[in-house]
Computed example of a mutant assay.
Amino acid sequence: MTADLTLLLPLAVLWPMLLAGLALLPGWGPRMLMLLPLGPLPALAAALFAPRDTPVALPGVLLDGGLDLTATGAIFLGGAAVLWFWAGVYAAVYLRRDGRPAAFALFWNLVLAGNLGVFIAADIVSFYVFFALVSLLAYPLVIHDRQPASMRAGTVYLVLAVTGEVAILVGLMLASFGAGGAIGIEAVRAGLALPSAHPAALPLLIVGFGIKAGLMPLHVWLPVAHPAAPVPASAVLSGAIVKAGIFGMVAFLPLGTPAAVAGNVLTILGFSGLFLAALLAVGQAGAKSVLAYSTVSQMGLVMGVLGVALAAGSAPATVLPAVALFALHHGLAKGALFLGVGLAPLCGRAWRWGLMAVLAVLGLSLAGMPLLAG
């Protein structure tokens, strides 16, 4: 039974890729919008039932790489799957009269596959391919309506995405070289803690993952991309795709071995973003812009905590459960806020008051109000 359940890991990635392929078939594109909620279901099943720390080999695929689900990865995977499901439900209704349904369904499912794959990759080759998939192919979602503001936002997004991909690729290559050519994530992470590790490897990885996670001053794509993207795309950008950067740090930061310089720099930048982004959010006029800066602020808190742990040499077990729980809570709450903001103009007065009450509770939860998830 355990062996059968491990098959959920490759299915989590292959199923949305199959749905993306179906979107290319003549006459199937518009119909695929209705199937968007089905894309993350195998991943949700994997997060709930697949065995932990049981690698699945993929012979002949990406240098004989593989997939693996850790306890931390399961939390990220499950949270992302739930958010992608509800965002898919929203998109199926929101875009039912859209002029490019096939293109949206195609890139939605490809980005979904990459996002989920990041959380279950067992080696750096698979990880990088999935990360590139979620990072670069989110560009068509940002510019989906082809409006001038969206195109400008897409340009900013693409420049930073490519910059981040280059930093991560070079960082992983240097880290693998320092680990004796190993490609397993655990071995590469252990190699980063060795005195022989290349001094540029860890900073490059922090920069690359920091761009995706909204680390100040590398955050500038978030406040422009979120308002431009369709509402369901904004929800997954903030709630799930940003978490790919956080998970990259979780997977590769050599926690347990003090790295004072890198840890202190990450701490300063993370906590600076925590406060500065919150102040910048106050001056924003649009709700989606406020939520975007809010994401920068909250991810700054996470990265600041990781920086403190890295500088102090804290054991992973002392920090990763809290980081994973915070990421889960933020992803679901922030995704719900984006979807709720999109619903507000469609509601009548009575329904709108009820919706605003729900959004207020979600906001208070993100702010850490007692008795809520915060």
Rank of each mutant, 00 (worst) to 15 (best):
V61M: 13
L77Y: 03
L36R: 12
L41P: 11
P42C: 10
A57K: 13
L48A: 15
A57T: 13
A71G: 13
W86M: 15
W84T: 02
L48G: 09
A47R: 07
W84S: 06
A80H: 04
P37V: 11
D53V: 02
V61N: 02
A57H: 11
T72D: 13
A80S: 15
D53S: 14
A47D: 04
G65S: 11
A47E: 01
G60V: 10
G39T: 09
A47C: 07
V82L: 15
D53N: 15
F85N: 07
A81P: 03
D68E: 15
A71F: 02
I75Q: 09
G39R: 00
D53M: 10
I75H: 02
T54G: 00
D53E: 15
L44W: 11
L35M: 13
L58D: 07
G66N: 09
A50H: 06
P42V: 11
T70W: 03
A81K: 04
F49Y: 15
L36W: 03
P59H: 02
A81S: 15
L67H: 05
L38E: 02
L58Q: 02
D64Q: 05
L44C: 10
I75R: 12
P42R: 06
P51G: 09
G65D: 03
A81D: 04
A46M: 10
L44Q: 00
P51Y: 01
G79K: 07
L44F: 14
A74H: 01
L41H: 07
P40M: 10
P40E: 01
L83R: 04
L63F: 14
G78T: 05
P37R: 10
V56E: 07
L48M: 14
F85Q: 11
G78Y: 00
G66P: 08
V89W: 12
T70M: 00
L83N: 00
A43Y: 04
F49S: 14
L63W: 13
P55N: 05
V89Q: 13
P40F: 08
T72S: 15
P37G: 12
L83D: 02
A50Q: 03
L67C: 12
G60C: 10
V56Y: 14
A81M: 08
A50I: 08
L63Q: 15
G39Y: 03
L62W: 13
L35G: 04
L62F: 15
R52A: 12
A47V: 05
G88Q: 10
V61S: 02
T54C: 05
G79D: 04
L83C: 10
G73H: 00
L41I: 15
A46W: 05
L58S: 08
T72N: 12
P55K: 05
V89E: 01
G65L: 10
F49I: 06
D68Q: 14
F76E: 00
T70V: 00
L62T: 04
G66K: 04
L69R: 06
P55I: 04
T54S: 14
T72E: 12
G78Q: 03
A50F: 09
A71I: 08
A45V: 12
L36H: 05
A43H: 03
G88M: 11
L44N: 08
F85I: 14
W86H: 12
G65C: 10
P37W: 03
A87Q: 10
A45T: 09
L62S: 12
F85S: 12
